[in-house]
């Protein structure tokens, strides 16, 4: 139990997928203008990453490894991820049309979010079991959502602050996220090695 909690904590905070591994930066910059949209995006990505982690584990261990088809790994993982994203898109469109409108193009673009493929490939690399794979995926997605929420909150305040003209918009956002990244590196002392 303790081991699983530790895995969740370390993937969500210490090895944060956005700020330490630098995966999935596109939606982080793109959908962080308002906290509401960021929360929706975070939840959608969480669902997709967790589902993709589970599906890719099954794919790897039941199909790719027995038939020695390692060279098809990226192709088949992308196929599964794209299907999961399509499914999520349909579900969101049905359950929350407002969220569907506000996420816009970034919803189908979860497919190309490198964090999703990155988590699936890292799972294979680390040789995790099924439960650990799913936890690793869920923890990464949790970290992604936390960062997206914090960053969106910061940007909402930044939009009202008097930023010098040369820095307003994207430059200020990049500086903010780099400071956030520095702050998250502080978590590396949380678990003694």
């Amino acid at each position: 139990m303790n081991e699983y909690l530790l895995l969740l904590l370390s993937t969500a905070l210490i090895n944060n997928v956005v700020l330490v591994k630098f995966l999935g930066l596109c939606p982080t910059m793109g959908v962080s203008k308002s906290v509401d949209a960021a929360l929706g995006m975070g939840l959608a990505t969480t669902f997709v990453i967790t589902l993709a982690a589970a599906a890719s584990w099954m794919l790897e261990h039941w199909l790719l490894a027995p038939f020695d088809l390692g060279f098809l790994r990226i192709l088949s993982f992308i196929l599964v991820i794209a299907a999961a994203v399509q499914f999520t898109e349909m579900a969101i469109r049905k359950t929350s049309p407002a969220l569907y409108e506000s996420l816009g193009i970034y919803l189908p673009l979860i497919t190309t979010n490198c964090a999703v493929l990155g988590v699936a490939l890292l799972n294979v690399q680390q040789g995790y079991g099924f439960v650990k794979s799913v936890l690793f995926g869920f923890g990464s997605a949790l970290g992604f959502t936390i960062v997206l929420l914090i960053f969106a909150g910061l940007r909402e305040r930044l939009a009202l602050a008097g930023v010098p003209a040369a820095f307003s918009g994207a430059p200020a956002a990049f500086i903010t996220i780099s400071l956030l990244s520095l702050a998250f590196m502080g978590f590396s002392g949380l678990i003694p090695a």
Binding site: L69, L72, V80, A83, A91
Partner: peptide, 19 residues
Amino acid sequence: AILSLTILGAVLGTVLGFA
């Protein structure tokens, strides 16, 4: 390889169709 990808695509397509 061909068979597994074909089957994978068919299964995912069916699931998405029903969804």
